[in-house]
Design a protein around this nucleic acid. Structure first.
Length: 350
DNA sequence: GAGACGTGGTC
DNA sequence: TGACCAAGTCT
């Protein structure tokens, strides 16, 4: 059996392409520039987990302006960081971000090895490798979804994900250079996001087309993935309780769905089942509309109900939040949508 | 290893 | 329009 050896010039070709076509990004050093601040690399990598560059940009700008270094972030309150993260999704990242910042501040700086970085909460195999390579110039095999796609095509790896991960990683290892491994990783990701795209890859513009085993064999079919599961549809209610220009907000449980975030009170709906329909207080409720929102693993049809002139006390823990400053509360998108509906319903009554 | 975990953009 | 997808991690 003859092993197919990758062209030893692959990294050189890719780096030459990167020198000309690297995307300018706020957290990135362009080719030839000194490595960027590890804090900015780490922060951007956490934000970019399962999240698009376009979505991250405004959050990265806001975070780095408000918390310019890891010490500043370590001194921030959990509440402020969670609110600043609102809308970006995957809120466990924000919870882990503060923990990691405090850990790093305690250490006196970021670990410089993959193993050391891996100890930070929220830093897995991909992120540890990316930071080690990009911020510290260490050789590391950086494998994200872009790299998986590029490598699966380059070597025509037909095995479906996730089983193919081992083979993909081994192949990525064989083409990762000792020098400029950070640039190489970013070049692979740029190639994956701009050229070797999931659908309709632009093989005519690809610097590795001559080396690609899948070229001319429907590269867009790779990597092969398991079929998606159908998302269940759940029903639930959220409650807008208004009094003297304020709305009653609660804090969600620290773990799980939207964990630790401010929210409107609801009837206990979850991925596992519908809500009870029960409001937090007895009275005349008015239907304000239904929000349909898609999560990773289910769809929720959230019926929004409003109640004006609530008593001074509502059962349970929460806070009266000024409605004219609601954007500062840091509501996750689902509840921001619900709040919009409730306020629109209020306008119709006037 | 498979499921939980958000959101917005794209075609 | 809706399915697919994005610089994954944790349990």
């Amino acid at each position: 059996m003859t092993a197919t050896r990758p062209d030893p010039e692959i990294p050189a070709k890719l780096l030459a392409w990167y020198d000309k076509h690297a995307r300018a990004l706020p957290w990135r050093a362009m080719p030839g520039e000194p490595a960027p601040d590890p804090y900015r690399v780490w922060l951007s990598e956490i934000m970019l987990q399962q999240t698009t560059v376009a979505a991250v940009k405004p959050y990265f700008a806001a975070f780095t302006q408000r918390w310019p270094d890891v010490a500043a972030l370590a001194n921030a309150s959990d509440e402020d960081v969670m609110a600043a993260w609102a809308g970006l999704g995957y809120y466990s990242r924000a919870r882990n971000l503060v923990k990691a910042a405090r850990f790093v501040a305690e250490l006196g700086g970021f670990p410089e090895t993959e193993e050391g970085l891996r100890a930070l909460p929220g830093v897995g195999d991909y992120t540890a490798a990316a930071i080690a390579a990009i911020a510290f110039g260490r050789r590391a095999v950086v494998v994200d979804a872009n790299v998986e796609r590029v490598v699966a095509r380059l070597f025509a790896i037909e095995e479906p994900l996730p089983g193919a991960r081992k083979a993909i990683r081994a192949a990525a290892d064989r083409i990762t250079p000792d020098e400029r491994s950070g640039d190489f990783a970013q070049a692979m990701m740029d190639l994956g996001s701009r050229i070797c795209t999931p659908r309709a890859p632009r093989c005519d513009a690809c610097p590795l087309a001559a080396d690609c085993a899948a070229r001319g064999h429907d590269p867009q079919r790779l990597p092969v993935k398991a079929p998606k599961k159908v998302k269940p549809v759940r029903r639930g209610r959220a409650f807008w309780i208004e009094r003297e220009g304020c709305v009653w907000l609660v804090q969600r449980a620290p773990e799980g769905m939207l964990g630790g975030m401010r929210a409107l009170p609801d009837d206990g709906w979850s991925a596992a089942g519908d809500g009870s329909g029960e409001p937090p207080l007895v009275g005349a409720w008015q239907e304000a509309g239904v929000v349909r929102h898609t999560f990773t693993h289910f769809v929720i049809g959230l019926s929004v109900r409003r109640y004006d002139g609530a008593p001074a006390t509502v059962s349970g823990k929460g806070e009266w939040w000024p409605i004219d400053r609601l954007d500062e509360a840091g509501l996750p998108t689902l509840f921001a949508k619900a709040a919009r509906l409730a306020r629109a319903a209020s306008e119709r009554l006037l």
